[in-house]
Structure formats: C-alpha cells, structure tokens
C-alpha cells in the first residue's frame, strides 16, 4: 500500500515537475523591463497622492478585493471560534501563576509598549511607508501577548477582555463596508476613492479614503489575531478534558 503510494507520488511528482519547468522556461525573463500593470498602478497611485503604491493597489484600485480578503479573515476567525469552543465534556481550570525568570520578565515588559507603538505606527503610516493595516495589526496584536511570556496567562486575560476584541473585529469590517457605501451615497461608485480630498503628498492625511480603510483593516486584523490566539491559548492553557482529570482528583 505504502509502496504503491510512493510510486504514484514519484510518477505524479515527476510529471508535475516537468510541466512546471516547461512553464518556467516560457515565462517572461526575470527582471525584465516590461511591467505594464505595475507602471499604470504607480501612475494611478501618484495621481491620488499616495506614496506607498502597494497601499494604493490594496485600498484604492483593488479596494473591493480587500473587502473580500477581510471577509475571508473574518469568516476564518468565526470558524476557529466555533471549532475551538468549550464542549460539554470539558471544563475550564484557571491556570496556575507561572514562575518567569527575571530577565525574561523585564525584557518582555520593556519591549511590550515599544512593540505596541510600532504596530500602531505601521498602521498609521500605511499609505506612506512599507506596511499598513495587515502588517501593523499583527504586530500590535502579538505585542499584547508579550504579557503572556513576561508574566502569566492570568495577567494577559486581565488586559484582554475578549468581548471587546470580538466587537472591534466586527465593527472594523462593518466600518469598511460603511466607507464603501458612503461613496455610493455621495453619487460615485462603491469604495471609489473620490469622496475625500487627496491632501498633500507624503503626509498622514493624504490619499483620500485610503488612510481610513487602512485603519479599518488594521483594527480588524489586530482584533482577529487577538481572538484567534486567545482561543488557541485557551485550548492549551485553560480547557481540560474532564475524563483525564477525574482519576487524579
């Protein structure tokens, strides 16, 4: 059985490898000069005073796709929350306060505010410098979890009221849709970046609706990452199988 499977894998893998190599040889030369879509994206971005072209592609030219991307993230978080819920035969035990080595504690508590501010900075400067809502949101959410490394799970739970983050997540997705609908009410298209003045190039308020959409995504990603990590950590730290616990007690 296993032999057969390996043979099948070898045959299929060789075939796929041959096709992939043939396809690679036919692709445009690496580092070539012709990038028609890229050139047009750069022009469109500069016309709307957005310094970071990738933010322009994500939140202006492809803002509708980003709505889909946000919905995927939201749906995935929802799925994880449902899959990782506490079932009837499990019970929740508050984790024991943990001993943390002093250097680890000191370093984690020192870095936490720096990491948090860095995350917020990356979100706020999404349309100016590399980064944006997706990247900054993850940095901000993981910064909070330094508390778990530096102190213990109880300390993290005290600064992380889960309901607030779940609400933030949902509100951020809604606000993205509302910003899109605002364009519709103003007489243009859904999520069209013609609502607000484009501002001065290379300043925080430049780019029309891009900074607002970027902030909405940042909020959503920060909320989503926190909720996801919270449910996985709950499984690892707090929720216990009742059947395994009984004999010991």
């Amino acid at each position: 059985m296993n032999r057969l499977r390996l043979w099948l894998l070898a045959v299929g893998g060789t075939g796929l490898a041959a096709l992939l190599v043939a396809a690679c040889l036919d692709l445009p030369r690496f580092g070539g000069r012709s990038h028609p879509y890229g050139d047009r994206a750069v022009h469109a971005s500069l016309r709307r005073h957005i310094a970071n072209t990738i933010a322009s592609v994500n939140f202006d030219q492809r803002a509708y796709d980003t709505l889909g991307e946000m919905s995927i993230l939201f749906a995935a978080v929802l799925g994880c929350v449902v899959l990782l819920r506490q079932t009837r035969d499990e019970h929740r035990a508050p984790p024991e306060p943990a001993e943390v080595a002093r250097p680890v504690r000191r370093y984690a508590l020192l870095v936490l505010p720096v990491a948090l501010v860095t995350g917020l900075y990356v979100i706020a400067h999404g349309q100016l410098s590399p980064g944006g809502g997706f990247q900054g949101g993850v940095v901000a959410a993981t910064a909070l979890h330094l508390l778990y490394l530096g102190a213990d799970y109880g300390a993290l739970e005290r600064v992380r009221p889960l309901g607030v983050y779940e609400t933030t997540d949902a509100l951020a997705v809604s606000s993205y849709v509302v910003l899109g609908l605002a364009g519709l009410l103003a007489g243009t298209a859904f999520l069209a970046n013609t609502l607000l003045p484009y501002g001065t190039f290379n300043t925080l308020s430049s780019g029309g609706t891009v900074p607002l959409l970027n902030a909405a995504v940042g909020m959503e990603v920060a909320g989503a990452a926190t909720v996801l990590l919270a449910h996985f950590l709950d499984q690892a730290v707090e929720i216990e199988d009742a059947t395994e616990e009984e004999p010991g007690k």
Binding site: H35, G38, L46, N52, T53, N58, P130
Partner: peptide, 25 residues
C-alpha cells in the same frame, strides 16, 4: 520598493507593485 516617500517618482525603476499587493493577499 514602489514607495515614494523617500525617492523622487521616476528617478529610479521600481518593482511591480501589483504582484506585491497580491503577495500580501
């Protein structure tokens, strides 16, 4: 990088921003 906060537009070639956005997605 196709980020113009510190380079003059048109002064240097930039890589394709469309595929970078796709990579982020």
């Amino acid at each position: 990088a196709p980020v113009f906060s510190d380079i003059e537009p048109g002064s240097r070639p930039v890589v394709d921003p469309v595929v970078q956005a796709l990579t982020l997605t």
